[in-house]
Design a protein around this nucleic acid. Structure first.
Lengths: 137, 137
DNA sequence: CTGGGTGCAAACTCTTTGCATTCGG
DNA sequence: CCGAATGCAAAGAGTTTGCACCCAG
C-alpha cells in the first residue's frame, strides 16, 4: 500500500530540471515545463518537487533573498551566488572542520554557501570602471 | 540629502531584536514588538529590517524550510539549526578553505550552515527510545 | 519648512490545499 | 477496480507597495 506511482508528469519534471542545469525556483521550473507541456499544473510541480526532495531525487537549495531553488545534482557540492545578479553555480565540495563549541547540538551535517561575483558581472563591472574613468578624465 | 533619520521605531526594533537573542523571523519580531508597542506597524518592521540589513546593523539568515530570520549579532559566526524542531543557535566562526574551482566566480565571502539536533530534542529522542524499549519488552 | 518615515490597507508573489476526476498498477 | 496523482481554483502565508499624514533635522 501507499506505493508511489510512476506518472509522465514526474518524469517530465525531473527531466526538465536536470536538462536546465541551472538552479530554478519552483516557479521558474514550472514556466519552463509549461512551454512544452501546458497541461501540467503548477500545483503538480510543487507537489512533485517536494516529494522528490524527500526521496532524495532532487535537492532544495535555500539562498538568501530568493525563493527556494531546486538542483537536479544530488551529489555533495556547494553553491556560490552572485551578489550582483543572483546567478547560482555549483562548485566542488569542500570539507569543513567541525566547530568545537556547538551550543550542545549534535552536528549531523552542514552546507557552505559562497558569495561572489559571477564572470558576466565581473566583465560588466570592468566596463563600468572604464566608462567611469573616461568621464572623469 | 537622503540623510537617514533616527526614529523611535528604529530604536525599538533593533533593541527588541538584540534583546530577544534568538533568530526571529520578521513576523515573530513584529509580534514581540507589537506586545509592548502596538502602534508600530508590520510594514515598518519589514522596511526597517531590510534597511538595517543593508546598513549592516542586522544580519539576514536564510535557512532551509523557514522564512528569512534576523540576527542582531553581526559578528562573523555560523548557525546551526535543529532538523527536528527548527531551533537556531549561534556557534563560533570556523575558517573554511576556499575551493580551487569556483566556476569563474570571484569569491567574496561564505557562510556555513550546520544541521543537527538541539539539546532538548536529544533528550526527547532519548526518552522516546526508552519508551519504545519498554513497549517492546 | 521638507522630505524621509510611518501606519494602514490593498496588492502581490509564492506555495499549499480541497475536491472531483483521471489513470497507473 | 482502487486509491494515488493530477488539474483547477480558491485559500493561505509572508512580504511589498501606494498614499496621506506626521515629525526629525
Amino acid at each position: 500500500m501507499t506505493a508511489k506511482r510512476r506518472t509522465p508528469q514526474k518524469g517530465i519534471i525531473l527531466d526538465t530540471l536536470c536538462r536546465m542545469g541551472s538552479h530554478p525556483t519552483a516557479g521558474e521550473l514550472y514556466e519552463e515545463i509549461h512551454r512544452s507541456h501546458p497541461s501540467i499544473s503548477r500545483s503538480t510541480v510543487y507537489r512533485v518537487l517536494g516529494q522528490m526532495e524527500e526521496d532524495g531525487l532532487v535537492m532544495r537549495v535555500c539562498l538568501m533573498g530568493s525563493d527556494d531553488r531546486f538542483d537536479g545534482n544530488v551529489r555533495q557540492h556547494n553553491h556560490i551566488r552572485c551578489r550582483r545578479c543572483g546567478a547560482v553555480a555549483d562548485i566542488p565540495w569542500v570539507e569543513v572542520a567541525s566547530p568545537c563549541e556547538t551550543a550542545g547540538y549534535l552536528i549531523t551535517g552542514y552546507t557552505v554557501e559562497y558569495t561572489g561575483i559571477c564572470p558576466a558581472c565581473q566583465a560588466e563591472e570592468e566596463q563600468d570602471r572604464r566608462a567611469q574613468k573616461a568621464v572623469v578624465s
